[in-house]
Design a protein around this nucleic acid. Structure first.
Lengths: 133, 133
DNA sequence: AAAAATAACTTATAACATAACGTAATTGTG
DNA sequence: CACAATTACGTTATGTTATAAGTTATTTTT
């Protein structure tokens, strides 16, 4: 089945893993142009979607950006703490909370298939310094 | 202080309140053009931002859309259950869960100022019917 | 009435995302 | 091995969402 051995996906994953912070799809394109000058948006968006489906990368909705998964165990629901001052993103996993969220939603008969939980604020470093701009 | 008595904000809020579901900024522009044909994106985005700051509307990050707040009490943190089949959005408030979320984040010294909690899945009606496409 | 403050208008463009269709590579089956 | 099936990727074009930057207008404060 004509996959070029998922080379594109590997490259994109590599790019994301080399960055501590999130990258927009176009940031990724920018990085990849150094290697594949002709790469176009659909290629990258498709690969990112596949990688996200496999749980290897996460999309941060409130930043319109992507980040490599920090955890080996895949397909887990994550909580992201996003520092609005320095841009640092901390991923954590809290199964108990997700049960709670699903329970709240489930009270009206809702079935949850995907969680988006993104907390904005200040990381410990930025918070300690006494506020951003 | 040169506000046209916040007329634009009122109009936009009215538009959002007349719709059960979320509207994109450009959907709002489309509605408003019937009244104010010359309205441009920045006007709408600014008003939406102000309204969101006041807690009168919420931005659904994962839909890139806006919805009127269902609760009179403002500035509360909300959970949104979004049906991926019919588009229905249910807003609920669960202070306990937010404490839990803040606690998880706070373990690494993070201070939360804004919550984005959006659950995707199937509402009771769509779930009962036996799945979407 | 002048100054201050904020909202809105305007123009232009930036940033993000996908539709639609074509091509290439790999694998399973006959 | 040939060939269909499947999936990744390429290509072109366009659609959608969002903001920068500078101007104008309205209302309140002084």
């Amino acid at each position: 089945m004509g996959k070029r051995s998922n080379e594109m996906q590997s490259q994109i994953l590599e790019v994301l893993r080399c960055h501590r912070g999130p990258l927009s799809a176009y940031d990724v394109i920018g990085e990849l142009r150094q290697v594949s000058p002709k790469i176009a948006p659909p290629t990258v968006y498709r690969a990112l979607e596949t990688l996200a489906g496999r749980g290897l990368v996460h999309r941060l909705e409130s930043l319109k950006a992507f980040i490599a998964c920090r955890y080996a165990e895949r397909q887990h629901a994550s909580i992201f703490a996003i520092c609005d001052n320095c841009g640092a993103v901390e991923e954590s996993s809290a199964p108990d909370l997700f049960k709670g969220l699903s329970r709240v939603a489930g009270q009206s008969g809702f079935t949850v298939t995907r969680h988006v939980v993104e907390l904005h604020g200040l990381c410990s470093l930025c918070g300690a310094r006494g506020m951003p701009a």
